[in-house]
Amino acid sequence: MDLQNTSHLVTSKPDELVPSRYALKVGEIDVLVISDGVLPLPTTMLGHNAAPSERAAWFKDMFLPTDAFDWALNAVVVRSGGKTILIDAGLGSDPDLNLPRAGQLIRRLDAAGIDLASVTDVVLTHMHMDHVGGLLVEGVKDRLRPDLQIHVAAAEVEFWRAPDFSRTAMPEGFPDALRAAAKRFAKEYHNQIRQFDEEHEVAPGVVVRRTGGHTPGHSIVRLMSGGEAMTFAGDAVFTVGFDHPDWHNGFEHDPDEATRVREGLLRDLAKTGELLVATHMPFPSIGRVGREGNVFRFVPISWDY
């Protein structure tokens, strides 16, 4: 199936008041960005090491509420070399944390005409619950092909055997929910998990690379075809990170390393001019990175219908 045409396969249902998928091509690679919904989180999550007044000023300048905000949650489907690859799997069922507007990925894949049985590979940027939860929804595993391969960094698998949250700053309840989801995922899918150390080519022009920082095995995925490129940055980049790349996200397990990863990635993207997609950038989160001294800016693409 040509993902370029999936946005026209199904008419939006009455409860779909906004677009939830966006298709494009990177050279010969088909790409579909799908919204899993949004996560309501306190604003401190985007810069818990920043002064409250400075953080509030940034949110005010961005015309966002200063106490809590809706954090976008995106996944990507890629077609290359005869493979259909799902990059991250969304939240799945609400883990009793009052996140009712996320966990939409499975039904939105159905609405886009993508049969779960057609997915040959899954790439996980990391094993936080909002990236593996869709695979834990009741009935999903039975719809997946038995030879499905799930690619995740070995350092990530090892970390979640005994996770250390000592440098995070998450809201109450999240550490336990993250630990439970990762443990359940590792148990249910251990036969399908394919670990890599630093870099692995999943399909022609689809390369996953471990960065660390956000989690020890956090990874990004780079697509390259026909002289074009796109990087799916996972949780390495957030909206505030363009203005304040040194602000620490509350879910980062090594905030200092995460800052170095973020700054290096943004510098590289500004230099190459290639496309960027990220999990928690506003949907469809596709754009390029500009740079002005030590400050970066996100330049969204113009929507192509």
Rank of each mutant, 00 (worst) to 15 (best):
T11S: 15
M127N: 05
L24P: 00
V119F: 08
L91F: 00
A117K: 14
P14H: 05
R21N: 06
A111C: 04
T11Q: 14
P100L: 02
G113M: 10
A117T: 07
L39M: 13
A112E: 12
D15A: 10
L9Y: 15
V122P: 03
D142T: 13
T125D: 08
W71M: 14
I34T: 09
M129L: 15
P146A: 13
G113L: 13
H128M: 13
A51W: 00
V33R: 05
A51G: 09
A50Y: 00
D115Q: 14
L91Y: 00
A112D: 13
R108T: 03
G134M: 11
K141N: 09
L32A: 05
S80Q: 09
Q104D: 07
V38E: 08
D94N: 09
L124R: 01
V26N: 05
D115R: 14
P95W: 03
L91H: 01
R145Y: 03
I85H: 04
A75S: 13
E138Y: 01
L97T: 07
V31K: 04
A23Y: 03
D15K: 09
R145T: 11
S12W: 13
V10D: 05
D61C: 01
V119D: 09
A72F: 05
G134P: 04
L32S: 02
D115E: 15
T125W: 01
V38L: 04
V18T: 14
L32E: 03
W71N: 08
H126D: 14
L105T: 06
G139T: 09
